[in-house]
Nucleic acid binder design. Structure first.
Lengths: 144, 144
DNA sequence: GAATTAAAAGACTTTTTTGTCTTTTAATAA
DNA sequence: TTATTAAAAGACAAAAAAGTCTTTTAATTC
């Protein structure tokens, strides 16, 4: 469904939301440990998200990654688009370039509702909401 | 959603259903042309599907790939499982190994209905049905 | 302002996926 | 039974995705 890169990105965003809700910042090492990902790899991903304004960061001592209140309202759709592009929102399920409502591939109609549901879900789900459930221990980002 | 390999596989299965409905067989070259795919690549994919009994084939002159009536009832789920495994049916949306109803990832609940819809759709959609729509020119496998 | 800390940048490697080519095997037709 | 046809098998190559490492830049603290 998502690329590995995108999975890490979503997990990292939720973790950062959680760790920075008191106004502090999280370092890349803690993020990597917290979401069980390769340190340098998630660093690269977050740099890209930073460039696109999806996550905030600050260098130097007491520096790290963080999300402000508006960042906590970021939808999953925003993250997925930034990382994987919008294939999942609009690409053809059978990989045809010419696929459209007027010139549909054999799976076009079967996909319409699924695609709509995925899009709705990604748009309405916000990083902050997921972080709150995590805080209540209703969901988990890793084993423990 | 699907791997490129799986996209080609589905397209090829529909094309084979169409071309072999009169009891004849289609050669790999015609398949490659008919679905706009690399010839040797789709050959390899169909060999694997042949090994798994998802498609029938015969060597020699008048040989080629074909589907009998029961093959025409093959669901997309069967093809997808044979090619991509069952990640799409049961894997965690965030790539967590430990994800389950009892120990859900942050997206687990959000994914349940989507996954169910995808599974239903893949189970109920049969190659033969898609081929019939194609015959009626209601859908397309390529440009023309 | 010098030392320290932590992210940014970017080169590099490994693995997986996708795609290509050649040889072998099996069926049919003459 | 020999020639021909077409799939099966498998080695190989290219491209993309995933992951690693080193150097540079920008903050903070002393």
């Amino acid at each position: 469904m998502f690329s590995k890169t995108c999975e890490y990105a979503i997990r990292a965003m939720i973790f950062i939301a959680q760790q920075s809700k008191d106004g502090s910042r999280v370092g890349i090492k803690d993020i990597a440990k917290g979401i069980d990902s390769p340190e340098h790899f998630i660093a690269k991903i977050l740099q890209e998200l930073g460039r696109k304004g999806v996550v905030q960061s600050l260098k130097g001592p007491t520096g790290g990654f963080y999300l402000d209140n508006s960042g906590r309202k970021t939808s999953l759709a925003t993250i997925v688009k930034a990382v994987d592009g919008d294939d999942i929102f609009s690409g053809c399920g059978l990989g045809l370039k010419q696929c459209s409502d007027k010139h549909p591939c054999p799976l076009h109609h079967e996909f319409i509702n699924i695609r709509k549901d995925i899009t709705n879900m990604l748009n309405k789900t916000k990083v902050g909401d997921l972080q709150e459930e995590l805080d209540k221990k209703l969901t988990f980002l890793r084993r423990d």
